[in-house]
Amino acid sequence: MEGVKPRVKVPKKAAVGDVITIKTLISHPMESGQRKDKEGNTIPRQIINSFTATFNGQEVISVIIDPSVSSNPYFEFEATIPEAGEFRFEWVDDDGSVYEETKSIAIG
């Protein structure tokens, strides 16, 4: 899907062992499959159906998403920082598109 933009808030720095808060948002209509258009035809479902956050390849959180999650889906969670490295965030669309974002975090 075109025009989908992720947004992620991760601190730039942390100490080893710190627990940090991560917030994520992605612009997406999350068409539920429950709505009808002006002609009365059901608008087909198209949602982001999963979200995964990993750090240096290790999983932080993964979410299975159903149509009851709001448009522009928002997730907030916490991660433990074992070392310097890179977060990788991945959203999967019903149409097969994968939207990705990465954020580095330094130790200090």
């Binding site: 933009k5 947004r7 917030k23 948002l25 992605i26 612009s27 928002y74």
Partner: peptide, 15 residues
């Protein structure tokens, strides 16, 4: 400004 879902559209406008 992160919790405000309108801000992601500001990001799009910046592009």
């Amino acid at each position: 400004d992160f919790d405000n879902p309108g801000m992601i559209f500001v990001d799009q406008a910046l592009d």
